[in-house]
Simulated scan of single mutants.
Amino acid sequence: MRILIVGAGAIGGYFGGRLLEAGRDVTFLVRQGRAEELDQNGLIVRSPAGDIDYPSPPHVMTSMLNTTFDLILLSCKAYDLDAAMDSFAAAVGPDTLILPMLNGMSHLDRLSKRFSPDNVLGGLAFISVDRDASGKILHLNELHQITFGELEGARTPRILKVEEALSDAGFVATLSEQIVQEMWEKWCFIATLAGVTGSLRASIGDVIASGGESFILELLAECGAVAAQASHGVREEVRQRFQTMLTAQGSKMTASMLRDVERGATIEVEHLIGDMVARRGSKKQDGLSPLDVVYLNLKSYEARRVREQG
C-alpha cells in the first residue's frame, strides 16, 4: 500500500517515521522549508518508545505530485485543512482512502465535499508530541495509537488492508467498528481539556488546586449533552475514565492548544469549541455556560493575536 503522509510535523512525522522504519512504502508531502530540514537533518524523533534517525526520508512537494496514492494520512491543524486539501488533491484517485487524524467532526463533511464520501475514513490519533526549533519531533509520553475505521463501521476488504498496512509498525493501530462514536467521545474530552487548560492557561492539576473541579465537570457534561443530541452520547465507562483523568490532583496534563496560546500561535478554537457551541444551539438558561466561557476566552485571545500582528 502506497502511503502519503501530509506534512512531516509532530504527528505525521512521528507515525510516518515509525511506518518507514517498519518498511512501509511512505512518502511525506511537505512544504519547501520542511523539505530543506529533511534534506539536511533527516527525520529525527526522540521517544520513550525508541528514537528515530532516518536520513533523507522520501518526500515531495505539491508541484511534484504526479500519481495517486492508496492511503493518505492527514494530521494537519483544522485551520489548515483547506490548504492541505489543495496540496494533496492530485494524489486522490477514485480508490484513494483518506484517513484524517483531526479532533472534532466537521472535517469529515469538508473532506467528503471536496473529494467523495467514499474516499473518507474516520480516524483518531492518541499521542502527545511537539517539535523543537530544529524540526526534531519530541514524543512527550508513552501513548502512541491510531484508531481508524469505516464511517459506517463495516469490516470491508479495504479497511482490512489499511489495518495490515498500519499494524506491527512500532505503534498501536486499532481498527474500530464504531469510529464515529469514538470520534465524538474524544471530541468531548479534547474540547474539555483544551477549553479548560487553554482558557485558564494552566494544567489540570493547577486548575483542580484552584477549586476548578466543578467547572471542568460541568464543561465535560455540556459537551456530552451535545454528543447525546447527535445520538452519540458518551458511554458511561468512557465518561468515568474521562472524569478521572480530568480531575486528577497534581496532574500536569494540558492540551496542545495551551502550548499554542503560550507561543502566540493560531489555535483550533472554531473547530474544537466553536463547532461544539454551534451544534449545541441556543441555551435555555440565563448567563454564560462553561462552554460559552471558554469559547469567549479563546476567541478573545484570537482577536488580540490578530490585532497585535496586524
Rank of each mutant, 00 (worst) to 15 (best):
D292Y: 03
E213V: 13
S75A: 15
M101R: 04
L99P: 01
P290E: 09
A221G: 13
V30N: 05
V6D: 02
R239G: 08
L111G: 02
S167P: 00
D51Y: 11
G9S: 08
S56T: 05
A165V: 07
E182W: 05
R307G: 01
K161Q: 15
M64I: 01
S203F: 04
F242S: 01
Y14N: 01
K284P: 05
S210Y: 05
P58S: 08
V162Y: 09
G170M: 10
G23Q: 10
D39Q: 14
T68F: 05
E268T: 01
A89C: 09
Q40I: 02
A248T: 15
A230V: 03
D39F: 00
A125E: 00
E236C: 02
A265Q: 12
F215D: 04
G13Y: 02
F69T: 04
D25W: 11
E302K: 13
L166C: 07
A278E: 14
L43V: 06
A22W: 06
D80S: 14
L296D: 07
R158D: 13
A173I: 07
G16Y: 03
L296T: 12
R304W: 14
H139Y: 04
D286G: 01
P57D: 03
T266D: 13
N141S: 14
A22S: 14
V207T: 08
G274H: 05
Q229G: 12
H59N: 15
S106C: 03
G123R: 08
Q285R: 14
V180F: 04
A165D: 11
R114V: 03
M257V: 04
C76Y: 02
N41F: 13
A10S: 15
